[in-house]
Structures are given as C-alpha cells and as structure tokens.
C-alpha cells in the first residue's frame, strides 16, 4: 500500500492536553487537529487558555497531561519538532539593547539553514527596513509585533503558530497582517492563529476552534458552521399577533419563536415566498423580513457566554461554561 498524503502526520495534532497551575486548570483536555493548508482560528475570551495551549505546542511549557505532535514530532522531546515551525506567544520579545536587525541576526544564527540570508527580505515584508538599525528597546508595541513576524518568517516555516498576531497593530498593520496570512496560506503554509477579532478569523480562517475555560466548546469548518445554522429569518409586520398565527399555520416554516418583539423562524426560499403571500392575504403587512445567517460572533457569544445569540437548532454542550472548571479542579 502506498502512503497517501493523508497518512503523513498533520501539522498539529493535540490530544487530551491539560495544563494545571496549582489549583487552576488553564487548559482542561484540549483536542486539536490542524491539517496541511488550514488557516485555523483559535478563539476564546481572555484567560480561556489559548496562549497556554500554544506555549505547550511550542514546547515552552510541559503539559500536565496529553500530547502535542507537530508533523508527528513531540516538541517536549527535542527542538527538532520545531523544524519548519515558527511563531510566537503573546507579545514577541527581543533583546532591547540590540537593534532589530542584530536581533534577527542572532535568531537567524540560532536557526541555521541560511535563515540569516533572509533577514532583508523579512524586514521588507513587515516594512521595518528603515527602523532596523534602531534599538528594539525604543520600538513601539506594533513594531515589535512586526519584528516578531519577521523573526518567524526567517525560519521559512511550513507551520506558523501565531498568538494574537494583530494585537497592537494599527489599521493598516492589521490589513497588512491579513494580507500576509492570506499570502502565506496561498503558498501552502499552514497557519494557526489565536485571536479576539472575530471578523478577522471569519475572513481568514477556514477552520475554527473556540475554547472556553480551558475546554474546546466548538471545533469545525466555518463554512459548515454557517450552513449548519440553517437560514433563519426575522419578521416584523403591521400585525405581529396575526403574523405569528400565520407562521405557525404555514407549512415548511419551522422553529417559530418571538424574541425582542420580533418573530423568528427558519425556512427555505420557497417557503418564505409563500409565507409573504399568506401574510398579505391575512392583512399583516411586512415591515421587515431579514435573513439571519449565523455569524462567528453569534456562535462565539452563544458558546462563551451562553446567551441566545445563535439561532437554529444547534445546541452545543458547554453552553454553561462555568461547569467546566470546577469539575476539573475538584480533587
């Protein structure tokens, strides 16, 4: 039997990952698989455990339990597992008393494999060439962030692990970051990035995991996520009471509810067309009829805060985030 690409180990394979700090469980059994070519978004509120899981993936901290495999290799055993892997957690750090270029020279020397030859190119990409001679101690937060990206690019990675890469960047910087990530993805580089910026993740990523109190509450394709929500509609009419009765009586209209004074229901295109006619005939004239596709933001809030932001029948265990932690820390 020949070995198909699917059988080669995925860029990231995390199983049952746990990290405890004393009584506090920062990461409580995380499973993540990032496949080649994915742009994988890692979302979660502050303190959910994103950075902690990324630190374990980079071999910086020892997991309390569970395994990390990068292209099948364990970063805890040897730094060889980081071959072809680059990234950073939290704000990238450098030696403040040396220039940006000197810092990159050091890191390039630590990388080997001709990384030093790529310094100019990397500085060019992050638009830091003209400040490269200045000491990093005098850099702004955003400039350090850019230098962190440059340092990651030196390694010519196949997998990038980025912790909130857009934090601290100005609007142009954020746009450049998105363009860069997209370009890396087009070159076939697998990217995993944590973020709070839902729009960014929605725009860039094909897959997303949402972590809440150390537990993954959702993992899947963004496209599927939006499909899975079904098309739901919101309706307001001149006579909502009558409209509600019409909706309930109408065939092919499901999940009829009222919330915030508006009627919501799920339906397909044809059923909506029939409904509108039925409403007119019943004398409830349509004021508003809007399709609601579930956004990442809806999902995020529904999962991390347990609010009713998400519509449709999707109900995911973990809507009560408080339940995850005490269970884990109990002895």
């Amino acid at each position: 039997m020949s070995v198909s690409p699917a059988e080669s180990p995925p860029p990231v394979e995390v199983r049952g990952l746990v990290k405890r700090y004393g009584d506090l469980t920062a990461v409580a059994g995380v499973d993540i698989t990032v496949n080649t070519g994915d742009v994988y978004g890692y979302l979660g509120p502050n303190g959910a455990g994103k950075t902690t899981s990324l630190r374990m993936m980079l071999g910086l901290i020892r997991p309390t339990a569970g395994t990390v495999r990068l292209f099948g290799r364990d970063p805890m055993l040897s730094v060889k597992a980081l071959e072809g892997v680059a990234g950073f957690v939290e704000a990238p750090t450098f030696y403040p008393y040396m220039s940006g270029r000197r810092n990159l020279e050091l890191l390039g020397a630590f990388d080997g494999h001709g990384a030093s030859a790529r310094i100019d190119e990397a500085l060019e990409i992050v638009e830091l060439s003209d400040r490269a001679r200045d000491k990093v101690g005098g850099y702004s937060h955003g400039m350090r962030q850019r230098l962190g990206i440059a340092a990651a690019l030196l390694r010519r990675p196949n997998l990038m692990l980025l912790d909130e890469p857009a934090t601290g960047l100005d609007p142009a910087g954020m746009r450049d970051m998105r363009v860069l990530v997209r370009r890396l993805a087009d070159q076939g580089i697998t990217v995993m990035l944590s973020s709070h910026l839902l729009a960014e993740v929605e725009e860039l990523c094909n897959k997303v995991a949402i972590i809440q109190a150390g537990t993954i509450v959702y993992e899947g394709e963004i496209a599927e996520l939006k499909r899975g929500g079904g098309t739901s509609y919101r309706l307001a009419t001149t006579d909502d009471e009558r409209a509600l009765a019409v909706c309930c009586a109408q065939p092919n209209i499901g999940d009829v509810r009222t919330d915030h004074g508006r009627i919501s229901f799920t339906a397909d295109d044809a059923a909506v067309a029939e409904l509108s006619q039925a409403l007119v005939e019943a004398g409830a004239l349509i004021r508003v009829l809007t399709p609601q596709t579930m956004t990442l933001e809806d999902l995020f809030f529904s999962l991390t805060e347990g609010t009713d932001g998400a519509r449709g029948e999707r109900s995911i265990a973990g809507e009560h985030p408080e339940s995850a932690e005490p269970a884990e820390t109990a002895r």
Partner: peptide, 15 residues
C-alpha cells in the same frame, strides 16, 4: 527579565 527565553527556545537549538 527581557522575556526572551520563549524567543530563543523556539529556534533550532536545544535548551
């Protein structure tokens, strides 16, 4: 102090 261990530990050298 500089928080740079994470920077150098994620290159190609063993601890």
């Amino acid at each position: 102090h500089n928080g740079t261990l994470k920077t150098i530990f994620t290159r190609s050298l063993e601890r």
